[in-house]
Computed example of a mutant assay.
Amino acid sequence: MNIDAIRLYSVSRRYGAGDGLVTALDEVSLAFPRGTFTAVMGPSGSGKSTLLQCAAGLDRPTSGSVTVGGTELTKLSETKLTLLRRERIGFVFQAFNLLPSLTAEQNVALPLRLAGRRPARARVREVLEQVGLGDRARHRPTELSGGQQQRVALARALITRPEVLFGDEPTGALDSRTGREVLSLLRAMVDDDRRTIVMVTHDPVAAAYADRVVFLVDGRVDGEMAGAGAGDIAARMTELEAAPC
């Protein structure tokens, strides 16, 4: 039986109460099969980041269920949820979030050290090689370009061999050429390693690297595209942003 890497069933997330009630997600049901690359897009305020946070166990839905590899997150205690995120989920954000006083290899090893595990130096070097930074292991963030720093962040996310890698605008702070290099790395992780990647982005060029693009509007799924090019994705986004509220 092929269990989806992530499955959301009728997930809603509401904030506030009364007149201040905001519905960020509204009955969203989605499946993310193993070994696929999905981009999530939508106008500002459509619920993209909330979807990612609920799917990754960073935020709890108000209602509905989220499962990662068959484990339902909504029933886990905070302690067990923290352990699951640490061991089975990787994160890459627009901000690199590297510790400036640590070298690249020390930043990469940090998730294992925080989990009380002694990182094997060979494993740390392996993931740095995987992102093309084997010769930068002893460099600190200030000695690396923005693209190299994001690669270190990517290696740090991979050190625990996560089932799912979540990216929140992972190329948002990079120039177009460096962004393409990082996106090519993500694409290769899906094609070569059968990694599952879910990426929130506003960039149609970035989304075109994914197998499919899921569109959100006002907290609801508003269709998806598979194997689409950047031009078609941009046209769809223009339609969504021009639609009356």
Rank of each mutant, 00 (worst) to 15 (best):
P141Q: 04
A210M: 11
L102N: 09
M199Q: 08
D59P: 05
S10Y: 03
L144F: 12
D4Y: 04
E129N: 10
R123S: 07
E163P: 01
S10I: 01
R212V: 07
T38E: 03
S10A: 11
R88V: 05
L185T: 01
D26R: 02
T79E: 12
E239C: 04
G90W: 03
F37E: 04
N107K: 11
R156P: 00
D135N: 12
G229S: 08
V213M: 12
G47I: 12
P111T: 01
A228R: 07
Q106A: 11
S12V: 01
V164K: 08
R14V: 10
V217K: 08
A173G: 10
T196E: 02
M189Y: 15
R212N: 06
R161L: 00
G18D: 09
V66L: 05
S10C: 07
L112M: 06
T196V: 13
G167R: 02
P119K: 06
V164W: 14
Y209R: 02
L52R: 04
T82K: 00
Q148S: 12
R13A: 13
A230D: 08
T160G: 13
L25A: 06
D191Q: 14
V131F: 06
L174E: 00
A173W: 02
V182M: 06
A173F: 05
D191S: 11
V40T: 07
V214N: 10
R14M: 11
A228W: 11
A122S: 11
G227A: 10
R212T: 11
N2V: 10
L144G: 04
E169D: 02
D211F: 11
S12Y: 00
G172N: 04
R236G: 01
V66N: 07
A109E: 07
G64P: 11
P141D: 06
Q150D: 10
L98F: 08
G229Q: 14
E224D: 15
L174H: 06
V11G: 07
V108M: 13
S184M: 13
L25I: 07
S184W: 02
A115D: 07
T142Y: 15
V205N: 09
G227S: 08
R194H: 14
V217W: 08
D193L: 05
V190S: 00
S65C: 12
Q106C: 01
P162W: 06
G20H: 13
A228N: 14
L81Q: 01
A207Q: 13
P244S: 10
Y15Q: 01
H139N: 13
L52G: 02
R212L: 08
A155V: 02
D211R: 12
C54I: 09
V124K: 00
R34S: 15
S29H: 11
L133A: 13
